[in-house]
Amino acid sequence: MAPPLRREDVAHVARLARLTLSEAELDMFTEQLGQVLEHANDMSALALDDVVATAHPFGLTNVVREDVVTASLERARVLEMAPDAQDGRFAVPQIMGDAP
C-alpha cells in the first residue's frame, strides 16, 4: 500500500510535468488525485508477485523496416508550424543548462 498523496508530492509532480498550479489548484488536485489513488489501492491487496507485467496485449516481436531513405518534409512546411524560427531553425528563448 502506497503512502497517501501529499500536497508537496503534487507540487513536485507539477514541476516534473512543466505545469504551474495555483494554491487553489494544488488543494484541488491533491484531493482529487488522492481519491483516484485511494481507489487504486484495491489492486495492492492482490498477490501478483509472480505475474508478468503486460505492456502490450499481443506479443509481437521484431517489427522492423528496411534501411531505405524515404521523403522528408519540405523545410518551409516544417518551419511554417514553428511559433518562432530563424535561419532555417526553430528558435527558443534562453536554454538554462546542458541536457542531462
Partner: peptide, 25 residues
C-alpha cells in the same frame, strides 16, 4: 499529474508496475 506521479521514482512499483500486472491478470 496522475500519470507523472504513477511513474515517478518511488511510486512506480506500487502504482504503474502493479497496474501492468493487474492487466495481465
Amino acid at each position: 499529474m496522475l500519470g507523472t506521479y504513477a511513474l515517478s521514482a518511488g511510486y512506480y512499483d506500487a502504482y504503474y508496475g502493479q497496474a501492468l500486472k493487474v492487466r495481465t491478470h
